[in-house]
Design a protein around this nucleic acid. Structure first.
Length: 272
DNA sequence: CGTATCCTGACC
DNA sequence: GGTCAGGATACG
């Protein structure tokens, strides 16, 4: 379930119930996690209090009272749940953290690709992230980053050092909004197109936040993602799909041209 | 840069 | 049985 709005919601949801609580026990429930977090590190959580939950892009930090932090990343399918230690563990439970107040925080992930790490004080995954789309410097930073990329724009948008928090769905949606071909070379976009793209990224993220529920293919909030074969909501042309860097992209072959230019008399600007 | 890889489950 | 999935990264 996690694109940025889901991660934001998940962090908010657990914040209320875990901040200020003391960890009385923690368990890893999947071999993939046991490979990356030592039993000793897990044991060291006992007795620590969670002082806050930080979240930036798709990264979450459960900050502990000794300065360390539990770093969580949901990858493709993670989520949090809160229950009690006596409840039956869901099949998708990958880690369990019991709290002093009798509640239990579960990392759920049917695919088991989520990651957990225990970070020493002073180490933050946030340091490697690019600008937040809602920050003041985003537009300029995006323009600079795209200008120096060689490949197509869509994979560039998924690079978290280019735009923090943009995922596969919203990259496709934003490109549709901005009428940019996902295959267009990143460095080929005009300043106006880049501005439109930056605004479109904010718009689709905002829409995702507002839509509240998880979105699924076929939901009205998504214009192109998962809609191969359906008509483009803007022009009626059949939505196409292609793979880039191993990820599916959906786009309108008509609205999203490499460059919207006509060779009649004068260059026609993008209007409808 | 693209591709393979980590996992499991849903769907054809 | 094969393909696909909202992510990130190691590698060629």
């Amino acid at each position: 379930m996690p694109e940025l709005p889901e991660v934001e919601r998940a962090a908010r949801r657990i914040r209320r119930s875990i901040v200020g609580r003391e960890i009385i026990g923690a368990r890893l429930l999947h071999p993939a996690l046991k490979r990356t977090v030592t039993p000793r590190a897990v044991a060291s959580l006992r007795g620590r209090r969670i002082v806050r939950v930080d979240q930036r892009a798709k990264h979450q930090l459960l900050v502990l009272d000794d300065g360390r932090a539990i770093h969580a990343h949901f990858r493709m399918a993670g989520d949090w749940a809160i229950d009690t230690p006596d409840a039956a563990l869901p099949r998708s439970a990958r880690a369990a953290i019991e709290l002093h107040d009798g509640s239990r925080l579960l990392l759920l992930d049917p695919r088991a690709l989520s990651t957990l790490a225990i970070l020493p004080q002073g180490v933050s995954p946030f340091d490697d992230l690019g600008p937040d789309p809602f920050s003041a410097e985003f537009d300029a930073a995006l323009a600079a980053a795209l200008a120096r990329r060689r490949g197509p724009v869509k994979p560039a948008l998924l690079d978290q050092s280019v735009a923090a928090g943009v995922g596969n769905i919203y990259a496709a949606e934003a490109l549709w909004e901005a009428r940019i071909d996902p295959r267009a070379p990143a460095s080929s976009l005009s300043p106006a197109r880049v501005r439109a793209l930056a605004a479109a990224i904010r718009e689709v993220l905002q829409r995702g936040r507002a839509s509240g529920r998880r979105y699924r293919e076929g939901q009205a909030a998504l214009r192109v993602y998962g809609r191969e074969g359906e008509p483009c909501p803007r022009c009626g042309t059949t939505i196409a799909r292609l793979a880039q860097a191993g990820r599916s992209t959906f786009y309108c072959p008509r609205c999203q041209r490499p460059t919207v230019r006509r060779t009649r008399k004068t260059t026609v600007r993008g209007g409808r």
